[in-house]
Design a protein around this nucleic acid. Sequence first.
RNA 1: GGUCCAGUAGCUCAGGGGAUAGAGCAUCUGCCUUCUAAGCAGACGGUCCUAGGUUCGAUUCCUAGCUGGAUCACCA
Length: 625
Amino acid sequence: MILFYFCAMTVTDLKTTLESGVKDALMALYGPDAAALPVSLQTTRKEFAGNYTVVTFPYTRVAKQKPDEIAEKLGAYLKENLELVSDYNVIKGFCNLSVADSFWQEFLLSIYENTDYGRQPDNGEKVMVEYSSPNTNKPLHLGHIRNNLLGYATARILDAAGYEVYKVQVINDRGIAICKSMLAWKKFGEGATPASTGTKPDHFVGKYYVLFEQKFKAEYLDWQSSSVGEAVYAEKAKEGQSPEAFFKAYKNTYFNEYSQLGQEAKQMLQNWEAGDEATVELWKTMNGWVYAGFGETYDRLGVDFDKLYYESNTYLLGKDIIEKGMASGTFFTKEDGSTWVDLTDAKLDEKAVLRSDGTSLYITQDLGTAQLRYQDFGVNKMVYVVADEQNYHFQVLFEILKRLGEPYAEGLHHLNYGMVDLPTGRMKSREGTVVDADDLMDEVIGEARAASADRETTSDLSAEEKERIIDQIGLAALKFFILKVNPKKRMVFDPKESVDMQGQTGPYVQNAYVRTQAVARKAGERDLSLASQHTSLESGEVDLINQLYTFPSIIEEAAENYDPSVVATYCYELAKAFHKFWHDYSILSAESEATISFRLALCKAVGNVLRTGMNLIGIDMPDRM
RNA sequence: GGUCCAGUAGCUCAGGGGAUAGAGCAUCUGCCUUCUAAGCAGACGGUCCUAGGUUCGAUUCCUAGCUGGAUCACCA
């Protein structure tokens, strides 16, 4: 009987069972009209006894009774008729239900040894997650870190939710930006290399990008005070526009029409596109440096990819898809020969997809790349992790693919995340406020090292082991700080707060896990079968088990919404409950062998879930700290 | 100007048609001879941007406004 009860309950969702119980109760007490109303079942607030709460206000009209009376009758009925409900109490029309200890107990015993608890079985669907996708002209910065962490965590969460996941990025390795770095190195580099200067190679290339901008700026300033510059200002400036304002706005035009450096950079791009050997060679060398540097950063950050797409291979793609769309009438040609799509009926305006000279645009390339990836992987879902400044672009892209009837069109999703601001405002490369990814990791790991310095808990470990733990702690602080925020929201990154290790932080969660491991170490090999004799649970135990119970639904929710912050918040709350449990109850010196066994099983389960959960958001868990 | 997103404690953020709106940081106060104090407990702190509307009930949903941001290239 007990066994049957336990099996039946673990396969059914607790909440669903309670809801249908409430429906039955309403039917029995007040008839079909009451039973037809929706059941509002919420988790009971901490300050009241019970686990789930039924709100009775909606039934007053049909039942013709006061909320308190309804709640009382409902509670009594459920306690009497539903084995799952062991008790109830009524407060101001809210009926708080307590779930039977036997349910919690048997649930715990069914999962505590399962290190994969929470993971869903394969659902047979394939999904691709694109993230990072940097330009190769400068190193990664804080914005990329948010992108990378979100992309990687989302991929892991989708994997745990049952998908077959492919992680990819498109490396923007061509175009005018990298030509600027190349040109500056060629003109001013005097043959220096990352090795000869002892510089991390992506930073080395970035230095020349900055150098180009400096030289260009100097050239522009000279020109502004030249006779040509003054004439242009006199002719083109708007009424009352200051020279500063005018020349700021005129910068792009100057680059394209007057600048010597601009001319040379553009020439370099043309040479590259024509396949000029020396240019391609230089391009390969400098990009090679950048990849080596990026690789280091990715490794350290703990992210990886299944396949890399290079823009240099894909930038001409998409023309065949345009032809197909021409045939089906999705696109049309304007008098000047340019090709367009009219999306005004989707509230999206007209959009060019080919220039009048027939060359591709950004959107053309993305159309082609989507198709290529479908051919490569046969995925029916694609997630693009790209900042929300490109919302419009993706709306247009997805709408076009939909109209073209692409088989994966319904599965496209733009995981748009908000920009990362500093306490002083937006990051600006011109003002040198861009936070470099490598520096940031150095800093946060340095803080972890300082905080670990005189801890006795790890004093017997080797230097290498200590370093590994310090890395894990520092990165946990950084990653958790970023991932706990809902991706959609713009966030403020305060470097001071990001290295905090107390409170709502990664190390706080790690510490809860470390405690579960510490007690397990101390307990040694032990037969926990007596745990089943611990039948009367403490509230602290029920709280924890109840939270463990919701873990699978957390994974589902995070996957459905592409939102790792759900998992981060869950891990924090579980850790918090465990820290309190740790403080309130003793484990190894509990009153009976049954209780000791039960609490050890509980620790094991909490440890498993904390590890699984944190791993889902890309955070490693040390056994000691 | 059009479109989209956001506005919750001094700061960073959760939450969400339901009970007295929650955490962390910061400030102040207790708790380590007992499983790791990177911990626990307490105090302080609110016009949930404003005004209407729907509802038994709105901080949550709707409308309008205010504020901040993004975007509206034959750029990427």
